[in-house]
């Protein structure tokens, strides 16, 4: 199980990287390689050239500005999990991304790779959509930004144009004291998600829901944002959450080699409720602590 030959480029700057990608010779980006390399070994993917961006300067920082997070594309998933500031300002990122594979794969897997590959099970994509983040891109013609909510188009399909490189993720400030939770089911511990639910909930001083977000993975071609505006003003009791059922009734998730679409349809509402409840409870804890 060995990959086919490829031309190898190791640029040291974003400009150099996008210039290489812009040549139109079928070059692919090699970032963490945790998804790409297995496909190359199975020879289901055989790029003529790889542009290894691991040596590109300036893409590996996590920076906070006024509560917003700027996450470089080369930030390793485990670095994001371990980042105390990110955990404080955007707890959903850690909650979601700690489910991605195992420590050794999170040590290599990158934020940019996870966004660009857009695997339907990629936890980071759900968090990015829930947090209304923006994907930062660069091509030879310059930078552009695409909201995560329109970046993901389907399984492994994104708004990324040929020759474009993901350079980072920009996550706006969250309401103070928002709670976050992420629930996932998979065949074994830390396998590809069969279904996952990412939720954030902010509460008002009286302890009622002030704002909420819910994003599900694997129930639709792309991360699926569910309209939960009906929860605002409630305390996420059974009656309030019961209204979710209607919002989820129309889902027609795809099946795959591991589980059927019917299973996903049965489990999605369960995880949705659990994630929302946990996020609500955590928001309450923040409120009490504050």
């Amino acid at each position: 199980m060995k990959p086919a030959p490829f031309e190898y480029h190791a640029p040291s700057s974003v400009a150099e990287a996008v210039a290489l990608l812009g040549r139109g010779d079928g070059a692919q980006v090699l970032a963490g390689g945790q998804s790409l390399v297995p496909l190359m070994k199975a020879r289901t993917v055989r790029p003529a050239a790889l542009v290894d961006v691991n040596g590109v300067a300036g893409l590996d920082a996590i920076e906070e500005r006024d509560g917003a997070l700027q996450i470089g594309a080369l930030v390793r998933l485990q670095a994001l999990v371990d980042h105390p500031g990110a955990a404080r300002s955007h707890p959903l990122l850690r909650e979601a991304v700690r489910h991605a594979g195992h420590l050794a794969t999170r040590h290599r897997g990158t934020v940019g790779g996870s966004l660009a590959y857009a695997a339907p099970w990629a936890e980071l994509t759900a968090a990015a959509v829930a947090l209304d983040a923006t994907v930062e891109l660069r091509s030879p013609s310059g930078p552009r930004s695409v909201p995560a909510r329109s970046f993901f188009r389907g399984p492994h399909q994104t708004a990324l144009q040929p020759g474009e490189l993901v350079t980072g993720l920009s996550v706006p400030a969250q309401p103070p004291g928002a709670g976050a939770a992420f629930h996932e089911v998979s065949a074994r511990y830390r396998d590809y998600a069969h279904v996952a639910a990412a939720a954030t909930v902010a509460v008002d001083p009286a302890g009622a829901c002030r704002a909420a977000e819910l994003v599900l993975l694997r129930v639709a071609p792309a991360p699926h944002r569910v309209d939960v505006s009906g929860l605002v003003g409630t305390r996420l009791d059974d009656a309030a959450l019961g209204a979710l059922d209607a919002a989820l009734a129309g889902l027609d998730p795809p099946g795959d080699v591991e589980v059927s679409g019917a299973h996903r349809r049965r489990v999605a509402p369960v995880l949705a409720r659990r994630a929302l409840r946990d996020a609500f409870a955590r928001a309450g804890e923040h409120r009490e602590a504050a």
């Binding site: 390399v37 070994k41 199975a42 290894d52 290599r108």
Partner: peptide, 25 residues
């Protein structure tokens, strides 16, 4: 050889990685 089993784990600058999913270069 596809990064699932972890039997090739080595420590790269102290951090565990799958040696089968990195190129030597």
């Amino acid at each position: 050889e596809t990064g699932v089993c972890g039997n090739c784990n080595v420590l790269l600058d102290g951090e565990s990685v799958r040696a089968c999913l990195m190129f030597a270069v």
